[in-house]
Amino acid sequence: MIKKVNTPLNEESARSLRIGDRVLLSGTVYTARDAGHERLYNALLRGEDLPFPLQGAVIFYVGPSPAKPGSVIGSAGPTTSYRMDSYTPMLLEHGLKGMIGKGQRNEEVKAAIKEFGAVYFAAVGGAGALLAERITDAKIIAFEDLGTEALRQLEVVDFPLIVAGDAEGRDLYIEGPEEYRAQHEIDADNYGGQLQ
C-alpha cells in the first residue's frame, strides 16, 4: 500500500511504518553523505549545535549532480548507505528519525532504528533524474566547501520511497530475497549458497 508521510517525522509515525510499505514523502529533508556525516558526528562529539534541527529530521544520502540553469537541482539519487553506518547510531540517539539511501545497514544501525523508533527508506538507486523531479527547492545550508557533498536543505513533494528497515528491526534486504526464493522454491544449492 502507498502511504503519504510528512516531515518532520515523530516517533509514532516512524514506528507505524513497515518494511515493504511504499511511501510518498513530503516536506523538508537534509542531504549528507560521507564527509558531511563525519562533520556532523564530530560536532555532536564536541557538544556543538548542528546546522539543522536533528529532532524528527530525515537525512537523504545524496551527492547531486550540478543544477542546470533554471533547475532546482541536478540528478539526485541515493548513494550506498553502509558508508554512513559508523556515524548513524549517534545521530539516531540525538533525534534523527529517517534516512533515505540504498543498500543494507549494519546490526548497530538496525538496533538503533529499533531502539529510538526510526525508519530507513530505500530510494531507487540510479533513478536520479526521476527523483530530481520531486525536489521543489534546494539550498546549501552548511559545509559548502564540500561541493557535491555540501549539506543541503531540500523540499520534496511525494518523494517515492520503499520502507527497507523498520522499527521492529525487520530488514527488507533480507526478507525480500528470502520471500522470492520461498515463492519460487529455490533452495540454497541453486544460487551458490546462503545469502547471509
Partner: peptide, 13 residues
Amino acid sequence: QVNNSGIGPMGLG
C-alpha cells in the same frame, strides 16, 4: 544462478 538468489532489483527481492 545469480538470478536464483532472489536479490532482485535494488536488492529488495
